[in-house]
Design a protein around this nucleic acid. Structure first.
Length: 455
RNA sequence: GUCCCCUUCGUCUAGCGGUUAGGACACCGGGUUUUCAUCUCGGCAACAGGGGUUCGAUCCCCCUAGGGGACGCCA
């Protein structure tokens, strides 16, 4: 089995493309096959080298690397042209001199008549000589149906009269996408074509090209689209974020892969999968046939899970290498313990890094925070004095001290805990008090309490 | 507009003619070495609508509605 991912380098890789790539890659890996990449860069205007690199880097980050060198469609142009001219010679294609203006007019009239706008076959039987400035169009069958068994969507068919004689060679002599794609899949000996379901009509066209060439058809699997959380097509406005942005925000590749694969595919009632398990269990036939909306919450869930599962030393190293950490934090001898504590409640690493601050820097107490702190200052002062005597080497001893202080003064925990959390962190949302005291350190804690008492 | 595809809890999904319609996320509530969080236990919550077929339909067929896609000398 040979599968491929065939992006056009006209933008970064986003969620949708990444998911398609993962499915195609897994399909190959699950069947001991090869996974290839082909850049569809025949649109010179829009294709950029920058995007080629970006796409490759994104895939690499996700753990996806091609088994053969990536193919660039633009390198095959002369071959495509040759085949197009051959089809012309055989009478399977024809030269057409209808101007773009005239096509525009025809389409307008068709639309007014509630018909599908399409090329009307004007030059089909004219047998025009192929002159400069003409295009070559493919002769679609005039009747019958084109049909195929999709591995995800089952039977798909269309009346051939709905398909028009599309252009395979432009007036400037360059080949077009549908033609190139069909031929390249053939040349690359692709056995399984996996792509978004927005390609269904292209598949129908490409099947006819392959039939004209007397070639065997690959298996097709069309993946339902990933829609934005509001149910719209993914676009710049609608959450089509460069996959590398997720890396920058502190999403782990394991989470990304797990989330994307679960968007449409399922295995029993399992939610979490290692790559090895995916390779073991994946079957394209188990992909769901309906479109799915992107869910930040679910992605966060997976990311939090893998954040917690990450080996602690490795996680620190990863964060240090990919995020900007303060010198003060790097020099903190409890830094890994702090990360270990914070990852419990973090959805991503940027969030975690933001939370780091109060471990090495006194929080600035705004009036709002000060007003929210409700505690008897005498009591707090007493707490501070006793805290000075506590052994901070052991977190458990801090907990014991808090318990005894509370019972000695007949206090409920929140009465001390809530104001203390605000004083120590400036936040209402933070880890447990004894963890905070322990990780912030005795000296800092006492300073912060003094700051409040003097405010 | 024409054609193609899709439709189970708010979201991702399981189901493949007989189920108390299952799981996960989110949400809500109880519990935990009295805290927001974590952890844990529990709860809420769905077969788009209408016709058939059948002893019996979430499941098969048709229609309607809704959503998405394709209709380029873009890919």
């Amino acid at each position: 089995m040979r599968t491929r991912f065939a992006p056009s380098p006209t933008g970064h890789l986003h969620i949708g493309g990444a998911r398609t790539a993962i499915f195609a890659w897994l399909q190959a890996k699950a069947n001991n096959g090869k996974f290839l990449i082909r850049f569809e860069d025949t649109d010179k205007e829009r294709s950029e080298k920058e995007y080629v690199d970006s796409i490759i880097n994104s895939l690499k980050w996700l753990g996806i690397e091609p088994d053969e060198k990536p193919i660039f469609q633009s390198d095959q142009i002369s071959k495509h042209r040759e085949i197009a001219l051959d089809l012309l010679k055989q009478g399977l294609a024809y030269s057409c001199n209808v101007s773009p203006e005239r096509l525009e007019e025809v389409r307008k009239i068709q639309q007014q008549n509630k018909q599908q706008p399409r090329y009307d076959g004007f030059s089909r039987d004219l047998n025009l000589p192929h002159e400069k400035g003409n295009v070559i169009r493919f002769k679609m069958p005039l009747d019958g149906v084109t049909t195929f068994e999709d591995q995800v969507l089952k039977t798909i068919s269309i009346n051939n009269k709905e398909l028009d004689d599309f252009i395979i060679l432009r007036s400037d002599g360059t080949p077009t996408y549908n033609f190139c794609a069909a031929i390249d899949d053939l040349e690359m000996q692709i056995t399984n074509v996996i792509r978004g379901d927005d390609h269904i009509t292209n598949t129908l066209k490409q099947i006819n090209i392959l039939k004209a060439l007397n070639s065997e058809l690959p298996e097709y699997a069309h993946l339902p689209m990933v829609l934005s959380s509001s149910g719209k097509r993914l676009s710049k406005r609608e959450g089509a974020v460069d996959i590398q942005e997720y890396k920058k925000m502190g999403y782990l590749k394991e989470a990304m892969v797990n989330y994307l694969i679960k968007l449409g595919w399922s295995y029993k009632e399992q939610e979490l999968f290692s790559v090895d398990e995916l390779i073991k269990y994946f079957d394209i036939k188990d992909v769901n046939s309906s479109a799915a909306k992107f869910s930040q919450e679910l992605l966060d869930f997976y990311n939090n899970h893998y954040l917690k599962k990450f080996k602690l030393e490795g996680l620190y190293k990863y964060i240090d290498e990919n995020f900007l950490l303060s010198e003060k934090f790097i020099n903190n001898d409890k830094k890994t313990e702090i990360i270990d504590l914070l990852r419990e409640g973090s959805n991503n690493i940027s969030e975690l890094v933001d939370e780091l601050t109060f471990f090495y820097e006194d929080p600035y107490l705004t009036d709002e925070i000060i007003n929210a702190i409700q505690i008897d200052k005498n009591l707090l002062a007493l707490f501070k004095e006793e805290l000075k005597e506590v052994n901070f080497k052991d977190k458990l001893l801090i907990g014991v001290f808090i318990d005894s202080f509370l019972s000695k003064n007949k206090l409920k925990f929140p009465l001390l805990g809530k104001p203390l959390r605000l004083i120590l962190t400036g936040k209402t949302n933070a880890p447990s008090i004894s963890d905070l005291l322990y990780l912030i350190g005795k000296e800092n804690c006492i300073n912060r309490i003094d700051n409040y008492l003097n405010s």
